[in-house]
């Protein structure tokens, strides 16, 4: 990858990361962390890339192990985040006598 393109992308992504997250209220920090955790699970793509090119036993074993670990990260991350968010999202539709004290 061209170094300038690389630096440009990195710097823009840093700003974007700062910008996007600073608007999230502390109430949702746990799901946010969990979501970020799921997103870095995209290392699964990297693991598949190296596993798909492996020809010798050692790289194959290591990269298949990486695929396994990365899958736990990405699948678990998205599922657990969903579980948390269901609880937040369910609130407004949740009827009953309780009208919010405002």
């Amino acid at each position: 990858m061209d170094v300038f393109a690389l630096v440009t992308i990195t710097v823009l992504a840093v700003f974007l990361g700062f910008e996007v997250v600073s608007k999230v209220s502390s109430t949702l920090h746990t799901p946010l962390m969990s979501e970020a955790n799921a997103i870095h699970g995209i290392i699964l793509l990297g693991a598949i890339m190296v596993a798909g090119q492996a020809t010798e036993p050692l790289p194959l074993v290591l990269s298949v192990l990486a695929v396994f670990l990365a899958t736990i990260n990405i699948v678990g991350g998205f599922v657990v985040t969903d579980r948390m968010l269901v609880m937040f999202a369910a609130k407004p539709s949740r009827a009953g006598k309780k009208e919010v004290s405002k």
């Binding site: 690389l6 992504a13 840093v14 974007l16 997250v21 946010l32 970020a36 870095h40 995209i42 290392i43």
Partner: peptide
């Protein structure tokens, strides 16, 4: 590029 962007986003956030 995708790994770079996703990783940097998570690192920054």
């Amino acid at each position: 590029v995708l790994l770079l962007i996703a990783g940097t986003l998570v690192g920054a956030s």
